[in-house]
Design a binder for these strands. Structure first.
Lengths: 204, 204
DNA sequence: GCGGGATTTGACCAACTGGTCAAACTCACG
DNA sequence: CGTGAGTTTGACCAGTTGGTCAAATCCCGC
C-alpha cells in the first residue's frame, strides 16, 4: 500500500514517468480513448504497477490536468499591467504561440477535454482561469480607456488569442497537411503580430 | 440482408434517425468514446437494428463525416471572386460564425477527429478541403496583388477565420463559463467584423 | 546481511463493447 | 387475405478494459 509520507526516489521517478506517458496517450486519444495498458507500456511499467501509484485511470487524468494547468496559464500571468500595452499583448501572443509549438500535447489534452464538455476540468477552469481572466480583463479595459490600444471587447480579444495560437497545436495535422512542405510555425509569428498590431494600434 | 436497391420509406427514415443520433453522440464523446448502444438508444432503435442499416460503428462514422463535410465547406465555396473583396471576406466570417452557432455539433465532431490526428478523415480533407483552399487562396492572392485588401499570408488568414469562428462552437463550455450570463454570440459578430476590417482594410 | 516496509507482477474478475445470428414480426402488394 | 421480402430483436459471443489481490521481489536502514 502506498503511504502518503514524503515520496521516495522510486516514487518520484515512477510518478513522473507515468504522468509523462499519460500525457502522451491522453492527448492523442482523449480520456475514453486511452487505455491504462497503453499508458503502462508507454511508461515501461506494468498495469497493476500504475494502479499502485494512482488509484484509478481517472486519478491519473486529473493529476495530469492539475499539474499542467498552472504552466498552461503562465503566459497570461506574465502580462504586465505596467509595461507598454501593445507590446505586452504582442509578447503574450508570441509566448502563447511558442507554447503551441513546444507543448502541443498539452494543448491537445485540454482541447480534447473541453470539446467534450470538460466534464473533469470545469471546476478547475471556473476558479483558476476565471480569476486570472478577470484580472487581465481589467488591465485591458484600463489600457483601452486610456487610449493606449484600440477599444474592443476584452474577453473576445483574449478568446481570439487563445483560438488563434492553440489552433496551430490542436489542428496541427490539418494545418500541416494544407501547408506542406512549409512549416506553419515559420510564418505564424509574423502573421499574428501583424494581425494584432493592426487590430490594436490606436487610431488617433 | 439490406440490398442496395433504391431505399424504402422505412430505410430513409431510419438511416436519417441513426445519423442524427450518431452526430449527437459522436460529437459529444468522439469516435472511441461513443458506444453503439448509446447511439441506438438516442435513435430509439435496438443495437442489432443499427447494425442492420450500417455494417459497423466505423461505417456510421464515415457516413456521417462524408455527409457533413460538404455542408461544412459551403460557406467557403460561396466566396465570390467577383464581389467586393473586403465585404466578401467579412460575409464569409459571418457565415462561418453562424455555422458555429447553428451547428455546434458538426463543428465539435470535426474538432474531435482532427485533434486526435484525423485518422478517419485525413483522406477526405486532403482532397476536398485542399482543392477548395487552393482555389480561394488564389482569389485572396489576386485581391492582395490588386491592392483591394491588405497583404498577408493568405493561408494563415484562412486558418485564422476557421480558428476564431469554430472556437465558439468547439470551446463552447469554456467560453460560456467565462462570459456568463452573457451569450458569446451576442458580441462575437461585431468583434470579428471589427477585427478583420482593421486587419484587411488597405492602408493606402 | 537481515528484517520489514516498499515495489512489482501474474493471474484473475466483472463489466462493457462491437458484432452475429436465427427466429420472429411487419408490411406492401398482387 | 396470403406470401415473400423487408425489418426487428433477444440471446449470445469473443475481445477488451479498468481494477483487484495475494504472492513474490526489491531495497534501505540498522
Amino acid at each position: 500500500m502506498l503511504k502518503d509520507r514524503s515520496p521516495t526516489r522510486i516514487q518520484k521517478k515512477n510518478r513522473a514517468a507515468i504522468l509523462e506517458a499519460a500525457l502522451e496517450v491522453f492527448s492523442a486519444h482523449g480520456f475514453r480513448g486511452a487505455t491504462v495498458d497503453q499508458i503502462a507500456s508507454q511508461a515501461g511499467l506494468s498495469k497493476p504497477n500504475l494502479l499502485y501509484y494512482f488509484p484509478s485511470k481517472e486519478a491519473m487524468f486529473t493529476a495530469l490536468l492539475s499539474e499542467l494547468l498552472d504552466t498552461w496559464l503562465d503566459p497570461m500571468r506574465e502580462i504586465d499591467a505596467n509595461g507598454d500595452p501593445l507590446e505586452e499583448i504582442l509578447a503574450y501572443v508570441q509566448r502563447k504561440l511558442q507554447m503551441s509549438r513546444d507543448y502541443p500535447r498539452e494543448s491537445r489534452l485540454f482541447a480534447n477535454e473541453i470539446v467534450q464538455g470538460a466534464p473533469r476540468m470545469l471546476e478547475a477552469l471556473s476558479t483558476d482561469l476565471r480569476d486570472l481572466l478577470a484580472e487581465k480583463e481589467a488591465v485591458l479595459t484600463a489600457w483601452m480607456a486610456a487610449g493606449k490600444i484600440n477599444t474592443t471587447h476584452p474577453k473576445h480579444l483574449m478568446f481570439s488569442i487563445w483560438a488563434l495560437t492553440q489552433h496551430y497545436a490542436d489542428f496541427d495535422v490539418q494545418v500541416r497537411m494544407l501547408m506542406e512542405p512549409e512549416d506553419p510555425f515559420d510564418a505564424a509569428p509574423e502573421f499574428l503580430e501583424t494581425l494584432y498590431r493592426r487590430m490594436l494600434t490606436p487610431t488617433s
